[in-house]
């Protein structure tokens, strides 16, 4: 049964990443191939900030202390700043020309550059927030969970609920949904498009950063971590239905669980194929995904 928990945790980080992809897709209308690299950059940013703050004793049963929590917040800001800068320098200019697929290509080029820049700065060797080994607590049915895993699941839950409430209850969220549905009408009713675009990048990049830090805490940090999560993230965004935040998270968990099941019953080496199989299934059977309303 342990694989169910492993899948849930892996699915949580996929889901957080997929929220960003689904929002960028529905608001800015392009699939951002650099989104995985936002995760990696977020994780490294947090690593650097932790290094600046210096060592401290871990909090209670966790492997991390206050510095990491602080670093996560700073890193979310830094990752958002990077996304906004990239949009200003590249995506916004190409978007203005109106060819969506050129923006996709630019994100592909940016992705390659961002990833290799990480390899240049930090080398491709994996690194860790903490090297301490954590004790896993049994929680019944033969399942064991570490304190870090609990913390990360709680973090995911808070972020997802927070973003969902923001999208459904706040003025900014309404404006984002309105713009996603009809950009021209959104302008007519007085919605500031630049502000909507900024919000989208900040939310997407912050969640990507959180997801990257999560993977960093639970597994490891390496420049390719974003690339290897990109396919599951895209698959989750499409399975959940483009534009749907709860859909992205649920689909992320479904993909995490399926991957864990594949590892358990088929073999760990085929794990990366699971997302592709699910993606093809969705595209062939129900391209609007679980919660998608329109196919765009």
């Amino acid at each position: 049964m342990q694989f169910l928990l492993d899948g849930l945790i892996a699915g949580a980080s996929v889901g957080l990443g997929a929220i960003g992809v689904t929002l960028t897709y529905s608001v800015l209308r392009f699939s951002n191939f650099a989104h995985g690299d936002f995760m990696a950059w977020g994780a490294y940013a947090a690593l650097v900030v932790v290094g600046f703050i210096g060592g401290s004793t871990p909090l209670g049963p966790f492997s991390f202390g206050l510095p990491l929590i602080l670093a996560l917040m700073v890193a979310m800001g830094l990752t958002s700043g990077m996304a906004l800068a990239l949009d200003w320098a590249l995506f916004a200019r190409l978007r203005a020309r109106g060819q969506a697929i050129i923006v996709v290509m630019a994100s592909f080029g940016a992705s390659m550059a961002l990833r290799s820049l990480l390899e240049f700065i930090f080398t491709s060797r994996p690194t860790y927030f903490s090297r301490s080994i954590q004790m896993a607590m049994p929680v019944g049915f033969g399942v064991k969970i570490t304190a870090d895993q609990v913390a990360m699941l709680v973090l995911t839950l808070c972020l997802v609920v927070g973003v969902h409430l923001m999208m459904t209850r706040t003025q900014r969220g309404r404006e984002m949904r309105a713009y996603a549905q009809n950009p021209a009408l959104a302008r007519v009713v007085g919605i500031d498009v630049d502000r909507v675009v900024r919000s989208t990048w900040v939310i997407g990049a912050s969640l990507a950063c959180a997801s990257g830090v999560m993977v960093g805490v639970l597994v490891q940090i390496r420049p390719l971590m974003g690339l290897s999560l990109l396919l599951p993230i895209f698959a989750a965004a499409i399975l959940g239905g483009i534009g749907s935040v709860p859909g992205a998270v649920l689909a992320g968990v479904i993909i995490g669980l399926s991957e864990a099941a594949a590892v358990q019953f088929i073999g760990a080496e085929w794990r990366a194929a699971v997302a592709f199989v699910i993606l093809m299934g969705v595209l062939l059977i129900r391209p609007t995904g679980l919660f998608g309303v329109t196919e765009r």
């Binding site: 699939s31 396919l231 085929w270 990366a272 592709f276």
Partner: peptide, 18 residues
């Protein structure tokens, strides 16, 4: 939509590599 082709080809490369 054309993006879906892009995502799928990306997946094809991942699976072929695998």
């Amino acid at each position: 939509k054309s993006d879906y082709l892009a995502i799928t080809t990306f997946g094809v490369a991942v699976v072929v590599q695998l």
